[in-house]
Amino acid sequence: MRKEIPMILTVLAGLFVIVAKYLFAVDQLGWFTTANRMYQVMYAMFFLLGVVSLTIVHGKNIQRRRSKWIYSLILLICMYGYGILTIQQTVEGPQANWIYNNILNPTDATIFALLAFFITSAAYRAFRVRTREATVLMITAVIVMLGVAPIGDTLIHGWNNVARWFMDVPNSSAMRGIALGAYLGSFAVALRILLGLERAHLGGAGQ
């Protein structure tokens, strides 16, 4: 009962989408549009899962006065304070937008920019491995970097054409091969779910 009904629900939901796609009558009746909207609403109701989990974890930190609990308090104040503000005036309201543009956005961009340092050290370590594969990887990376940055074409005239060839020919075909592999993998997983062979989602939440 606790596993069979969810299994049936999974199969029914999946079959509904497939039937709606291939039988146009379902879409003409407007059922699929309504069902899709219902799915979006249900999925949107999940959005508080992360908020609840963060509240539980950081709430316990504060309650038990664990080390660095003050950061947990700051996190919860920021989350609920900004959450209430954005609910009150939408995410594009004057104060909400100010916080987004001047705190959230610069912090986000800087954290991603920080990866520039680590990706450089990763490249150094990859190059030190000295396998033939790692060498090909690094040479291609250098060719592409010099081709995309203006310095490449300044140093060697026509270098960006070499980089473009690498991007357009071996890179695009290998990426397409990887994408085809990923598509086939996703089909296999989807089929396993609908056939009831994949049941990982039915465990973990009590028996």
Binding site: I5, V17, M42, H201
Partner: peptide, 26 residues
Amino acid sequence: PSIAWVARYPLSLALGWGAGYVLGFT
């Protein structure tokens, strides 16, 4: 904890919908 298993219902619906979407639309 006593009714944690009920959470499987919406998750199953979401997962089934996603699987159907992969097979039907991609």
